[in-house]
Design a binder for these strands. Structure first.
Lengths: 144, 144
DNA sequence: TCACGATTCTTAGCTTAGCTAATGAGCTTG
DNA sequence: CAAGCTCATTAGCTAAGCTAAGAATCGTGA
């Protein structure tokens, strides 16, 4: 157990380092007028789920509701997300991507991915496999 | 090759998602008065390299020099990093962790890692192995 | 040698992302 | 129906990142 914990500590350090650096690096590739990392992630969640309330979206994205209010506000300003009243609960709001949001999403997503996808395409299939499995595990861990 | 690019695109998406979420999650664990992610990373780099100029540190951390000026400023305010003039070049500055920085580093680092290390300790050895290899690969990619 | 270009660091000013605390509107329940 | 809860937003803060611009210093070529 001591050994398990020892490797876990070491791994935690290197993993933190790696995700910080990669996060920064991917962020740098953002083109002017592009969607940011967080905005794109929120839009993606909305597309995958079809529609969500701000609270639900905040939970999915693991941020606090006020943070999501801001992010959604930016998406709304661009006409990518629409806000409609909840049919039965007057407090809540339904968020959904607009048609423009859906079509723009695909483009932006592609541009956004471009740099990273290029790097990944240059790796060996084995390495990509490792990353694919790691991504799964990291998602699980982040969910905890 | 089309296939390679297809999987790379897909992987880029999931990997981006995973590192964003995990990044947020780890960030949340910051205790009051603690060092932030970026501050700790900068301090770590200084410890590993012994001493660096701001420019060098910015390059290692992959941020722009003004960003590093801020981060180092915060570390300096806490007495964790000292700034000494460069012996031969009057423009440059030498940054190095203070004694206090070195000792505090170990503590903070441990606290900082705690949550993540716990999660990782709960994984199977296989899963940890995947993450360890993935961390290596991600570092390489981030360096590119 | 000295003037001009390059390099280094910092300052100023901006945006985004995150947080907590507080507010107001609308549910729900005793 | 009043008291308390939940939801969304607003207000206000900090940190992290960027670019542009400035001051100091270095180095080099005429």
């Amino acid at each position: 157990m001591a050994t398990e914990r020892g490797t876990a500590d070491e791994l935690a350090r290197t993993l933190r380092e790696a995700i910080l650096r990669l996060n920064r690096r991917v962020r740098q590739t953002r083109a002017v007028g592009d969607l940011t990392f967080s905005q794109l992630s929120a839009l993606t969640s909305l597309q995958l789920h079809g529609a969500l309330t701000p609270r639900e979206l905040a939970d999915v994205e693991r941020v606090q509701p006020p943070t999501m209010t801001k992010i959604v506000g930016k998406l709304e300003d661009r006409g990518l997300v629409a806000r409609t009243p909840h049919p039965t609960d007057g407090r809540q709001v339904i968020l959904a991507p607009t048609e423009q949001g859906r079509t723009m999403y695909a483009q932006f997503e592609q541009v956004r991915n471009e740099w990273l996808a290029e790097q990944l395409a240059a790796l060996s299939p084995d390495e990509r496999d490792v990353l694919a499995r790691a991504a799964q595990i990291m998602q699980q861990v982040a969910q905890a």
